[in-house]
Simulated assay, not measured.
Amino acid sequence: MKTKIFTFLMVAMGLLASTSVFAQNKTTVNLGDSEEYTITVSATLGNWTGTAGTDYSFDWTIDDATAIVGGQATLDAFNGISADVTWIKSGFFNFTVVGTDANGCLTEPLVIPVTVSAMEACVDADNAVNKQMCSLLELETTGEADGDEIISFPVSVSNSSTGKLYTIDYTLSNGATTYTGRETGYTPGDQIEVDINSTQELITLFTATSDDSGSPKEVTVAIKAVTQEGTSLNVSMCATPSYTIEVFEKPSVSFIVG
């Protein structure tokens, strides 16, 4: 959703000066956001008659062109009172706008600071389902048992704008066997569900062969890559983008033969 992010009043007294109004303006955006930056001009001060780009114009620049899609060339395409950009780099940036009115007089440069918040992805382990499981039985692995075993876990993406979707690449591994999965069209906070009866790798991971240690086996669930769909932005990983599932060994019973 495009947001009008700032307005300012052009003032002319021979050589024009400019003032800005910030009371209702947004100067912090999220990585991947598309924004419309708009200015307004005075109806009485300065000669703003005619057509933008022909009779009067505005030059838009940014101090780091790599921060927006298309770089400075994107801004060069706008010579009117608004410019549209998509942010692809986090950090602190300055927009500068200079106007030339129909008399050929310049405004003082107006600098608008914009902070672009970084995104960080992390597994929400507190809300993961089935962090402790019993080993699959033989009937389950041959598909003869009723019902499937499901694990699920949510992924959080900090500073994600409403409506943005993501592709999540993840793995489940015990060191010897690794399953690689992908979730597309993902909304942060939703559960990613994995049917552990769906592939042999998962069946192997969740079948804990007894070694008489009595300790549960461990399967690590980790997100490997998170990409914002529509922008192809790669989201940074948090410090620990994983959690562990404990898989208990199958208990054993036997008949006493006498």
Results as ranks from 00 to 15, higher is better:
T3C: 09
T3Y: 12
F6T: 13
M10I: 11
V11F: 10
M13N: 12
L15I: 13
L16Q: 09
A17V: 11
F22N: 14
A23K: 09
A23R: 07
T27E: 11
D33H: 01
E35C: 08
I39H: 06
G46I: 00
W48S: 00
T54V: 12
Y56W: 10
S57A: 08
D59I: 14
W60E: 03
W60G: 03
D63T: 00
A65W: 02
T66N: 09
A67N: 03
Q72I: 07
L75G: 00
L75D: 03
A77V: 02
F78H: 06
I81W: 08
S82P: 00
A83R: 06
A83H: 04
S90D: 15
S90I: 08
G91M: 04
F92Q: 11
N94E: 10
T96E: 05
T96H: 00
V98K: 05
G99M: 04
T100A: 01
T100I: 02
D101Q: 00
P113R: 04
V116K: 00
V116F: 06
A118T: 10
A118R: 07
C122R: 14
A125C: 05
D126N: 13
V129W: 11
K131Q: 15
K131H: 10
K131G: 11
C134N: 15
A145T: 08
E149Q: 11
E149T: 11
F153H: 01
F153A: 03
T162M: 15
G163T: 07
G163F: 06
T167Q: 12
I168L: 03
D169H: 07
L172H: 04
N174C: 06
N174G: 04
Y186D: 05
D190F: 02
Q191F: 10
E193P: 00
V194K: 03
I196N: 05
E201I: 04
E201P: 00
I203Y: 09
I203F: 09
F206S: 02
D212W: 15
D212C: 13
S213C: 06
P216R: 11
P216D: 11
K217L: 14
K217Q: 13
T220E: 12
A222L: 08
E229T: 05
T231V: 08
S232M: 13
L233E: 10
N234G: 13
V235H: 06
Y243Q: 04
E246M: 14
E249N: 07
F255R: 12
